[in-house]
Write a protein that binds this DNA or RNA. Structure first.
Lengths: 186, 186
DNA sequence: TTAAACATACCGTCTGGACGGTTTTATTTC
DNA sequence: GAAATAAAACCGTCCAGACGGTATGTTTAA
């Protein structure tokens, strides 16, 4: 990192930029509507450059999903660290992350991108694996009926926010959030 | 209708068949992956024939969504008719429909198809309109916090069933269903 | 010197849909 | 009610553009 400003080329940054612009295009046009030409142009690199980082379009999409899962993991882990009560801790972290504690605008893109990605049948396996892993990790503390119900509701809320189908004012959102927290404590 | 068996051509049936095979292909390949050639071939008509019923691919996709919404409306209306208690009636109908009271295999296709369709940004407006209409129709009886929470949970459950991410045995599903019914009564 | 990190040019395929026919059904006219 | 006419319901062909990916050259960093 100390020499980052000296390097004229920063492959990691280029890769990250590619993922970001690809995410934007994915939100706008869908996963299949995302083209390599458009992504490369938006990132200011040639298509050859893009294909150097992601050898195929499938690799790019997998990269997007993996990045998204990594962000999700990190956010949940951080939210769990601040919660002393074991029962329902994972579920409450899920609440906090879904309602976006921090930079909303920043990760709104990643939330919106998930929809087109999951619509692509080829990408669902990775998502399923992650869900199964979480379920296995937090069995015992978060497998009560109400905890599961809360997490389903959060998925529904996420869906609504992506589709912009259920506009909610902040007060309403806060009440919902509190109710979900309460249910997670059983 | 009395002469239906005499007609050699049945445009309505052809149109319906086109929608059904298109739904299947949409589930398999996604909305963008659905090709006119494949749909026409699967329905046993030429591409020209398909384009006669649906002048463009967008029209076909809109047709799919409209058909899906119509089925949803009919199923919900029927479920509501059997419920004497006004408060939360729409929400309970939503529960019943989501958990699939009747021919599961038949409408499983239409549930699965919704995902790729909603992933297509161009189609979301119609969906939003339907949601807004439902909210307007049942304000007063179904706008309590818990009713909204239940409906969000149902959307989450629908998502899980489409993605096959949260396998549930029948007993578990029944408990969840009852819990959601209870919450809808407040 | 070597490999990574790009750029440029190009190709084969796929796909939406335009277009001009042809057959079937409905409607009108005589 | 038969002929004529119009309109709907298709079929087969072709094409222009888009898109993923390859092959190859060039520059930059180690």
């Amino acid at each position: 990192m100390s020499t980052a400003h000296k390097r004229q080329k920063d492959p990691q940054a280029v890769r990250q930029l590619l993922l970001e612009v690809a995410a934007d295009l994915c939100v706008e046009k869908g996963a299949a509507g995302l083209t390599l030409d458009a992504a490369a142009a938006a990132a200011g690199v040639s298509k050859g450059g893009l294909l150097h980082h992601f050898p195929s379009k499938a690799d790019l999409l997998f990269g997007l999903l993996d990045d998204m899962i990594a962000r999700m993991d990190a956010a949940i882990a951080e939210a769990m660290r601040a919660d002393p009560e074991p029962h329902g801790r994972f579920t409450r972290a899920y609440v906090a992350v879904t309602f976006g504690t921090e930079a909303m605008a920043e990760d709104a893109r990643w939330k919106a991108m998930t929809m087109p990605l999951l619509a692509e049948p080829a990408l669902r396996a990775r998502w399923r694996d992650w869900i199964a892993l979480q379920a296995e990790l937090h069995v015992g503390t978060d497998s009560s009926l109400d905890c599961e119900l809360v997490r389903f509701a959060l998925d529904g809320l996420w869906l609504a926010s992506v589709l912009e189908s259920h506009p909610m004012d902040p007060a309403q959102a806060e009440r919902m959030k509190q109710r979900l927290f309460d249910l997670s404590r059983g």
